[in-house]
Simulated scan of single mutants.
Amino acid sequence: MSSVSLSPLFRRSIGFDRLNDLFDYAMQADTPNYPPYNIEKHGDNDYRIIVATAGFKQEELAINLENQVLSILGKPEENKDETAEYLHKGIAHRAFKLSLRLDEHIEVQHADYQNGLLMIDLQRIIPEEKLPRQIPIGKKVVAEQIAQQDAVTA
């Protein structure tokens, strides 16, 4: 596997050094193929993750968020039928953990479970202090004064 260096991009950017770590993580991690899932974008700031969890009950699923990593876990109840002889076993009903890294301002809004599909709605919510603002030229303005100015204009 070849290593990708992003150092030329850092010449004209500040604070993106974590991006290199993210690419390294993405290149090393195996892409999970179970359970199947979709990531959809609805508009500029709305996203949805849909995970196909056929055969799972809602109580057997869990969603956790820690350090901007969304983890979706499935742990089926032990329900083995020792008397059954499978001629073909194509339905996977096994434990899983699906982890997805979220951007800094992505927040989980809602989760729902219908017809074997787990749907998680996400939204990018940019804090007021991160929104674009005008910087005055020729005046020494302390950070507190800028914040006060932003509060007055809002």
Rank of each mutant, 00 (worst) to 15 (best):
M1W: 08
M1G: 15
S5P: 06
S5C: 13
S7P: 07
R11S: 12
F16L: 13
D17A: 04
F23K: 04
A26Q: 14
D30L: 12
T31R: 07
N33W: 09
Y34L: 02
P35G: 05
P36S: 04
N38K: 13
K41W: 01
A52P: 03
A54M: 14
K57C: 14
E59I: 05
E60K: 00
L61C: 13
I63K: 02
N67G: 02
Q68A: 03
S71P: 11
L73A: 04
L73I: 14
G74S: 04
K75G: 10
E78K: 10
D81M: 01
E82W: 10
A84M: 08
A84Y: 08
L87W: 01
L87R: 04
L87I: 02
H88M: 13
I91Y: 08
R94T: 11
F96Y: 04
K97T: 09
L98V: 00
R101F: 12
D103P: 09
E104F: 08
I106H: 00
A111L: 05
A111Y: 01
N115E: 14
G116D: 09
M119A: 07
M119F: 00
D121K: 00
Q123H: 15
R124V: 12
I125A: 11
K130Y: 15
L131M: 07
P132W: 01
I137N: 06
I137T: 07
G138F: 01
K139P: 02
K140G: 10
A143G: 15
Q145P: 02
I146D: 14
A147R: 10
Q149T: 11
Q149L: 15
D150I: 02
A151H: 13
A151T: 12
A154L: 15
